[in-house]
Write a protein that binds this DNA or RNA. Structure first.
Length: 272
DNA sequence: GATTCGTGGGT
DNA sequence: TACCCAAGAAT
């Protein structure tokens, strides 16, 4: 949930989520569509699907437990370099570099004197961060937590508070006069009008509906029919949405949630 | 390595 | 208003 999403926005959803599914087996036993529904408006809904897939994999491969081996963690759906190492380090106290966007920026500044980190974590980022870790695994985990907090609270992207930073004069970026980024080089990140927004609108209808809805209920969310088609097609392709035999649409695998009265008697569609 | 994938709050 | 940017992962 925390992937590319501010902590404050995650917290309420996370609490409801764990209240409903306290352990992987509980989530795995429910429909993936219910995970999408509970995801709410956190964004990147494929993460909900992957989290459900992750729970399923944990049950199938690891007896419902979260493994402590880095390679096994990396094999889980939705678990990448950051999450796998965060779990191994924070939950199991292993010595791994934990590199998120905050640590990437912090290390870029402190070590390399650059104004910002890259968009994605590279092998060089992992190596540079690993070099900063104490030898003792428990201390390394504490240091990783400290790096993340430092990057998130003081060494921020916009307005870093260098005066309050405990690293003080040991920072190469500060020593270099805190040079600003040379080129903007950031992609335009507009959202309004994109297929992303249309996907979001379509999914919002399906989340709020108790079960599959007729096509007409999806058609009202966006005026451009061709863009609507495209967005719906990608949702189907991602496995977030299912088309039922009666030409209604619903969240993946959630056809069981009390379908409305069906005169045609086709039921909620077959389930496996 | 570069792109794509949502959403909302801060500046 | 417009833009930035979040505890990234998959392709």
């Amino acid at each position: 949930m925390l992937q590319q999403t501010p902590v404050a926005r995650v917290l309420p959803v996370w609490r409801q989520w764990l209240d409903r599914w306290p352990e992987p087996a509980a989530l795995a036993a429910d429909e993936p569509g219910e995970a999408i529904r509970m995801w709410g408006r956190l964004g990147y809904p494929r993460r909900a699907l992957r989290l459900h897939g992750c729970a399923t994999a944990l049950v199938a491969r690891h007896g419902g437990q979260v493994p402590d081996d880095l390679a096994e963690l990396l094999d889980l759906p939705g678990v990448g370099a950051y999450t796998a190492r965060a779990v191994a380090a924070f939950a199991y106290r292993q010595r791994h570099p934990v590199v998120d966007t905050n640590v990437r920026r912090l290390v870029a500044r402190v070590v390399a004197g650059r104004p910002d980190g890259g968009q994605t974590t590279t092998g060089a980022d992992l190596a540079a961060t690993e070099a900063l870790l104490p030898a003792e695994p428990a201390d390394a985990a504490a240091a990783s937590a400290a790096f993340m907090e430092l990057g998130a609270l003081l060494c921020t992207a916009r307005s870093p508070q260098c005066g309050a930073c405990p690293l003080g004069s040991r920072c190469a970026w500060r020593a270099g006069g805190e040079p600003l980024p040379t080129a903007p080089s950031r992609r335009p990140q507009r959202y309004a009008g994109t297929d992303r927004q249309v996907r979001g609108e379509l999914l919002a209808v399906l989340r709020e509906a108790p079960g599959p809805v007729p096509r007409a209920e999806l058609d009202v969310v966006w005026p451009d029919a061709s863009q609507r088609e495209r967005a719906l097609a990608t949702l189907l392709d991602d496995g977030l949405v299912e088309r039922h035999p009666d030409n209604r649409y619903g969240l993946a695998g959630s056809a069981t949630t009390k379908p409305p009265p069906d005169p045609a008697g086709s039921g909620g569609g077959p389930r496996r």
